[in-house]
Design a protein around this nucleic acid. Sequence first.
DNA 1: AACCAGGCGCATA
DNA 2: TATGCGCATGGT
Length: 293
Amino acid sequence: MAPVSTGCGAFLRGNDVILPDSGDFSLPETLDCGQAFRWKRLPDGGFFGVARGRACHIAQTAGEIRILGGAEDFEAVWRGYFDLDRDYGEVKRRLSSDPVLARAVAYAPGVRVLRQEPWEALCSFIISQNNNVPRIKGIVERLCAAFGEPLGEGVHAFPSPERLAALEPDDLAPIRAGFRARYLVDAARKAASGEVDLPALAHLPLEEARGELRKITGVGAKVAECALLYGCGRVECVPIDVWVRRVLDRLYPDGLPACARGVEGLAQQYLFHAARTCPGFLPGEAAQSSDGR
DNA sequence: AACCAGGCGCATA
DNA sequence: TATGCGCATGGT
């Protein structure tokens, strides 16, 4: 069987793309760790999701991950989306020279940081503020169903900035986003007009990129950092929410260790996930038992 | 029935 | 610069 692409170890079997299990990619750990909000567990244990206007069914068995739907979508979307050209084994070895990070990595070694679209990541994390994961998912789902382009079979793309820019906050009432509705409309108008140049954020100097995002009402330091990390591939960015705040206060009072330099955002994801879901990871705190579907 | 949820804007000192 | 409060909504 011919490789569908060089570098990431994928090959084609029939119409599916196969990723041999490297130990560096767990579907639940990656898709259900609070970084993306459109992935649903399927009865067969796999996941279904939509990104960049394409739907995807992905399944994991003992020895491999199977991406259904063909090599074209894989090359166009999923290879980049799942960050398959980054060597997470190497990243994890580096991070594991620190004892706390080593624990976080060992707890969930299949966590990857997804490379989402800037606009979707921005909206998702505007919605996330003072909110919980199950409800964030519900709001995003209703937003897509109401305003996203139909892709067939009841599936919808994430709505474009242009589409949302034409709305008033009240038009978003059915989404039940609460006070965040006007933030979404403001973001849409600034993105659609080019007042905030989202595609430029991937290569702008960090402070400038942060400043651009914070022109949007409802985008503060944390949401801006999320948009940059999850939406713009800026893996040095560290969103500091309540969980990461606790990790830093209690375990890294002097900041993240030197081994995380340049990939602080990836380190953050392992730490965030462990702090939230691994009992006893945070001293003097019970982790959440579960969240969401 | 309060309290919380991957925060932010605004007022006040 | 630094706190404190209200905010829509829904689940414990």
